[in-house]
Every structure is written in C-alpha cells, then in structure tokens.
C-alpha cells in the first residue's frame, strides 16, 4: 500500500489525524502531511482515513 496526499485539496477537517495519527499530521497551516507510509498494521487505519477525508485529498494505492 502507498499513500499520496494532495495538499491543495485539503480542507483541514483533521479526520485523518484523528483516525490514523501514525500516518498523517497537520502542518502549522493545518494542511495534511504524510508522516510515514503505513506498515501492515496501519493499513486499515489508512483506508479509513482515505474514506473519511471530506475533500478526497488522500489517495490510497493498494498493492
């Protein structure tokens, strides 16, 4: 699994940080940043965050 984030689309709702804090953070402007690619135990959290993102700024590439 690989994650990409689109900071231009991000609206700073913070759902990713709330639900997958090991993978996502917000920078000082509140915009999404990728902390780390998800390990095997983080894949479910990454998918959840991707599905919840209200502005579809997170893309989860499976495989």
């Amino acid at each position: 699994m690989r994650i990409t984030v689109d900071s231009d689309r991000c609206v700073g709702a913070g759902q990713c940080v709330l639900n997958a804090p090991a993978i996502f953070d917000q920078d000082e402007d509140g915009i999404v940043t990728l902390l780390a690619e998800p390990g095997a135990d983080q894949e479910a959290a990454a998918r959840l965050a991707g599905g919840l993102c209200p502005s579809r700024a997170i893309t989860v590439h499976e495989g």
């Binding site: 609206v11 700073g12 913070g14 940080v17 402007d29």
Partner: peptide
C-alpha cells in the same frame, strides 16, 4: 476563508 481558519481548529490546537 477556510484556509485562514484551519490552523485554529487542527487536532493539535483543539
């Protein structure tokens, strides 16, 4: 407007 306000409501700030 949204971008100006986001930093005030981040998970960390809250």
């Amino acid at each position: 407007f949204r971008k100006a306000l986001i930093p005030e409501f981040t998970v960390r700030r809250v």
